[in-house]
Amino acid sequence: MIGLSHYLIVSAIIFSIGLVGVLRRRNLLMLFFATEVMLNAVNIAFAAISHYYNDLTGQMFAFFIIAIAASEVAVGLGILIVLYKKHGSLDLDDLSSMRG
């Protein structure tokens, strides 16, 4: 039978995938994607805990995470467009103008 640990392991694997993505990618859009992967991993964990402990708090937090992701995408896309207008690229190496 599938237990809580199964879900938590899947969630951890997905979270680490997202983490690898955040560390590895240089493109801003891809960074956002990797962040979404991590947020989703957390959502799975919350929903699983909520199910196995018969408690709704986990689901509530998952809702708020989705809300945060929604506001993140609104602001993030704004920044993305501004940066693209300014630099013509979304590569983080091109954007690091403060390195001196």
Partner: peptide, 14 residues
């Protein structure tokens, strides 16, 4: 409220 702020921010930025 956060979503509203984010929406306004997105509109102003983009």
């Amino acid at each position: 409220l956060m979503l509203l702020v984010a929406m306004i921010a997105g509109i102003i930025l983009a």
